[in-house]
Computed example of a mutant assay.
Amino acid sequence: MKFMVIVKATPESEAGQMPSAELLTQMGRYNEELAKAGVMLAGEGLYASAQGARVRFDGDKRSVIDGPFAETKELIAGYWLFQTASLQEAVEWVKRCPNPDGGQSEIEIRQVYEFGACGGELTPELLEQQQRIAEQITARQ
């Protein structure tokens, strides 16, 4: 099972403040543990929302909203992509993570829909298309 592990933003991360050398060292050790265990598929930090944008959809209309965005607690500062046998295993790995903020912080874990999980909605043509896309991605890595 794949899980997106979402590190929530803080006022400091939204201000562009980089983590301390100590936290980066701790996170590096944690990432090495994840990689050695075969759990970590990907993971990176994100720039503050001031350097991002949102595209809002309203029917056929599209509008672009430039950052920064309000409600820091709803923003994402970084992520991991885990491969584990269960949600509980992902939770156990996240509980071992260094505290990203030092004070109160939160990391969210969400299961990723995997290939073929859409059931009857996925026609043979759509399955074939998804397979081609996966092959193209793999070829570029």
Rank of each mutant, 00 (worst) to 15 (best):
A85C: 01
N99A: 12
Q111P: 05
R110T: 07
G103Y: 06
V94L: 10
G103T: 13
R29L: 09
R62P: 01
A139M: 03
A21W: 00
E74M: 02
C97I: 07
I6E: 10
Q136D: 00
R56I: 06
Q83K: 15
G78N: 07
T138K: 14
G78F: 11
E108Y: 08
E89T: 01
G16N: 02
V5W: 09
L126F: 14
G116N: 02
E12D: 09
F57P: 00
A48E: 14
G52I: 14
A77T: 10
G38F: 06
N31F: 03
T72Q: 07
P11D: 14
A48H: 12
Q129T: 12
R110Y: 05
D58C: 04
A37C: 07
D101I: 10
C118I: 10
G16C: 02
N31Q: 04
E12Y: 01
G103D: 08
Q17P: 01
A48Y: 07
F3D: 02
S49A: 12
Q136N: 04
Q131C: 00
A139R: 09
R96M: 08
P68D: 05
G116E: 01
M40W: 04
P98R: 03
N31E: 07
E74A: 10
G16K: 11
T84A: 09
M18G: 06
R96D: 10
Q111L: 02
P11I: 05
E22I: 12
R140H: 13
Q104V: 08
A9P: 04
R140P: 02
D60H: 03
A42Q: 09
F3C: 01
L87C: 03
